[in-house]
């Protein structure tokens, strides 16, 4: 009897930990910013899908390239057609792990530094990255914020010579996602 109870308890615990460990959003925000003496270019994406497993530290971000919006329609066209070829490569992803997950207490509100290591895929090219950001735990939400530089050439993105002066070799990526505890 006691054994059965223990087993039941264990199963219950497992079930609760499985359901309580995932945080997700389907409307996270990512911006990139390219700055040169000729011009500044900014693009916003508010359709970012992100998931975080608070036990294993695994994180996944998925971005639809055609959801980036630019101030100038022509830039948006160039970005999709010539630079990232979004017909061929519609998604960008980051699959990784928060390496210091043990230092983050998801049951206690507060701001925690987070180190993320993983694979970033843009334009069909995958590179390993290591970046730092912050996770702010507040009730059932985790607010993930980070800023890092991406070197355009690392992702085999070719900039035509006619606009080479207008586009930075490194663009600044800003991540701002509010993930909610996922309840089935």
């Amino acid at each position: 009897m006691k054994k059965t109870l223990n087993l039941l308890l264990l199963l219950l615990l497992m079930a609760s930990s499985v359901t309580a460990q995932r945080y997700i959003t389907k409307n996270g925000y990512i911006r990139f910013f390219s700055s040169t003496p000729v011009e500044d270019i900014k693009a916003h994406n508010r359709q970012v899908q992100a998931a975080l497993n608070s036990e294993t530290g695994e994180v996944v971000f998925k971005v639809l390239m055609k959801s980036f919006s630019f101030k100038k329609a022509l830039m948006q066209e160039h970005f999709n057609e010539k630079f990232v070829e979004s017909d061929k490569y519609p998604n960008s992803t980051l699959k990784g792990k928060i390496t210091n997950i043990d230092e983050i207490d998801f049951t206690k509100n507060g701001e925690y530094p987070a180190k993320v290591g993983g694979k970033l895929t843009i334009h069909g090219v995958t590179n390993s990255i290591k970046e730092e950001g912050t996770l702010t735990v507040e009730g059932g939400t985790v607010h993930a914020q980070a800023e890092f530089m991406v070197t355009v050439a690392d992702y085999d993105i070719k900039i035509p010579s006619s606009v080479r002066e207008n586009i930075a070799k490194e663009v600044k990526v800003t991540v701002d996602c509010k993930l909610k505890k996922f309840k089935k």
Partner: peptide, 12 residues
């Protein structure tokens, strides 16, 4: 339509 992210089709 801006694409499909393996769970949802996105329209803007």
């Amino acid at each position: 339509c801006t694409g499909y992210n393996d769970t949802d089709v996105i329209m803007e």
